[in-house]
Amino acid sequence: MKPRASMIILFLMPAGLFYLALFLLPAAWAFYYSAFDWSGFSDEMTFVGLGNFVKLLTTDPIFWSSFGNTLKIIFVGGFFTFTLAFLLAMLLNSGIKGKKVFRALIFLPNVIATIALTTMWSFAIFSPRSGVLPNFLKLIGWTSASKFLWMSADHVFWSMLIAIVWINVGYFVVLILAGMDRIPIEFYEAAQLDGASMIQQFFRITLPLMWDVLTVSVVLWSISAIKVFEFPFAYMGAGEDPNLYTIGVYLYIMGFGKRQPIYQLGYATAIGVLMLLLIIVVSIFVRRLMQRESLQY
């Protein structure tokens, strides 16, 4: 072994050992437990093989509705998040005064505790009783719109998605801005001299030159959307509304029960394993889909 290689191994070993002991081995155990019917209360475990996965995929409609909600967050939420993030990033990059202040304001929701955000959206904004939105609509005389029930079972998921998009836009604005900032201004000046419109500049210059940033952003969004847990969980408040279940929330409900004595740790672990596989598949898929020749500039 070359001395350099041994040094690398030596320096990586402490972190590697921690990673092995605190993540990889327990994760392997999680795979193991997903093959058991196990409440977690005792050593009593019944081997069911792939039974938990079969049950999940064939006889559990709530898993599929949770999966559906997760997909809605990834695709519908993703579409609006990135559209708004690009619009805001371009606005901030257009030479507007106070760029840093606006960027900080847009990013602000990311540093506020989730429980505060869910309380704000569900009680202070959407509530038919105390919400700013219905009361504002009433104030301006749009009575029919003011009676729209944002928190009803039919609409509660979409109202939550609005809040999730609002929170995440700031994070992706920062990433996209970082990508935009490194594009030389001369490219835009040359394009403008050639008569290129804003849209043409966006599609011909901005998007291609920050494609790598966009790819990373989409992968990050997809992973966080698949794992999204705390916002829907807190948004449910005291209840347990399946209309708000994502895969992550359903995992928690099945493994930890919230207020119910549903303690199916083996089953919940199987959901976790499927989540992990989904993250791997989606990450590879997104990377492949967005693979482009790297542009040097």
């Binding site: 605190l22 993540f23 081995l25 327990p26 994760a27 155990w29 999680a30 193991y32 437990y33 977690g40 992973i223 966080s224 794992k227 847990f229 705390e230 992550g248 929330v249 995992l251 928690y252 493994g255 930890f256 740790l265 919940a268 672990t269 976790g272 989540m275 992990l276």
Partner: peptide, 13 residues
């Protein structure tokens, strides 16, 4: 640890 991992799958991020 396994329990923690199950929880962490949803909580870690």
């Amino acid at each position: 640890f396994a329990m923690m991992i199950v929880a962490s799958v949803v909580l870690a991020a």
